[in-house]
Amino acid sequence: MSYMLQHLHNGWQVDQAILAEEDRVVVIRFGHDWDPSCMVMDETLYKCAEKMKNFAVTYLVDITEVPDFNKMYELYDPCTVMFFYRNKHIMIDLGTGNNNKINWPMEDVQEFIDIVETVFRGARKGRGLVVSPKDYSTKYRY
């Protein structure tokens, strides 16, 4: 459970949190605080929140409390991280086939910071799709 990262409790707050950021990437974690995979992800987010405060801000959204986006964002994974920049959804080519979100818990803090930085650099140039520095496809694992 993370007490330091801010929770958003309704759809309007999510909308305003993204609209309010002028030049920072908004990282939103959709999931449940009690979910073990979400706990892992929250830990990573908490560790890197301080380091990337200049170019990214992190929020947590409980998908049971805020079900507004579940259908449209296809939120059926236990833990989903999505990036927004200037009210625009930024896609990342992670090599997994799903460019819309990170739908697995990341444990490596530096890897996550690298991804967010890539998103920030690409989004600032107006890109809607950036390529992750590391390929997360399973083909290297086996």
Binding site: D68, K71, M72, Y73, E74, F84, I90, N99, G128
Partner: peptide, 29 residues
């Protein structure tokens, strides 16, 4: 819509289906 992503795209664009912004979704809902 079943999803916010543009489901009509296909081919190499299939993986490039950005979701609408949260405000847009709230408006649609």
């Amino acid at each position: 819509a079943k999803t916010g992503a543009d489901v009509t795209v296909s081919g190499p664009l299939f993986q490039q289906r950005p979701y609408p912004s949260p405000g847009e979704i709230l408006r649609r809902n």
